[in-house]
Amino acid sequence: MAAIAQEPAQESAHEAAAIEMIGVNKWYGQFHVLRDINLVVGQGERIVICGPSGSGKSTLIRCVNRLEEHQSGRIIVRGVELTNDLRKIDEIRRDVGMVFQNFNLFPHLSILENCTLAPIWVRKMPRREAEDLAMHYLARVKIPEQAHKYPGQLSGGQQQRVAIARALCMNPRIMLFDEPTSALDPEMVKEVLDTMVALARDGMTMLCVTHEMNFAKQVADRVIFMDRGEIVEANAPEPFFANPQHERTKLFLSQILG
C-alpha cells in the first residue's frame, strides 16, 4: 500500500487521464467539423456525448482511434500521442475497442471467428486460448450458444452484443460506442443497454455517443452536449438534465425529452 501511495505525482497524474484532447480541430475540405475540442477523460470515467445530428459526435470519437485524422491540436490516449506513426496508432487501437451503429460484423466469418480474429492476428494469441476468451465474453453478453452461427443469422440486438464481445476480446482499456442502439428495434435496445451497463459497473472507461438518456442518468459520470462541431456544455448527469445552462442545450433537451 505504502509503495503505491509513494508513486511519483506526475506519473499518477499522467495515468489518471485515459484520453486527453487539447485544442483539437478538424476539417472536411473547407468544412470546419470539430472546433477547439478540449476534453480530458479520466481512467474509469463514463462519458455520454449527445447532440443534434451532424454536430460531429461520430467524428469526435472516431478521432480517438484514428479512423479519422485531426488536423490540429493534440490527442493523447493513455500517455501515447496520436501522430502519423503507425506503431503508435497500432498501440492505441489495441487498447481502444469500438462498437459501431451498424455492427460491422464480418459476414464471412462465424461469430466465434469474428471474436478470435484480432486476438490471433494482433495479439498473437494461441487459437485455443483465443477461443476460450471469445467464449468467455460471448457468455458475458449472454449468447454463447450462437458461437458457430454466422452474423446474418442473428437478430440485430444479438449482432450488436457480438460486436461488443468482439471488442472486449482485445481486453481494451477504453471502449468507444457510436450510437450502438439506434439501428435496433425497441425491444432489442434493452438487451444491448444492459450489456453496456454491466460493462460500466466493471469500471471500463467508456465514451458513448447515444441518445438513451436513461442510460446516461444511470451510468454516466459526465454528459457532454455537442453542437455544430463544438462542445457546448458538460456536466454531471443530474445537473445536466435538471438544470441545463446553455440555450442550445435547453432546446435540444426539450426536443428529445419533451
Partner: peptide, 8 residues
Amino acid sequence: EAAHALGL
C-alpha cells in the same frame, strides 16, 4: 473501419 478499430 471495424478491422482497423480492432488493431489490424
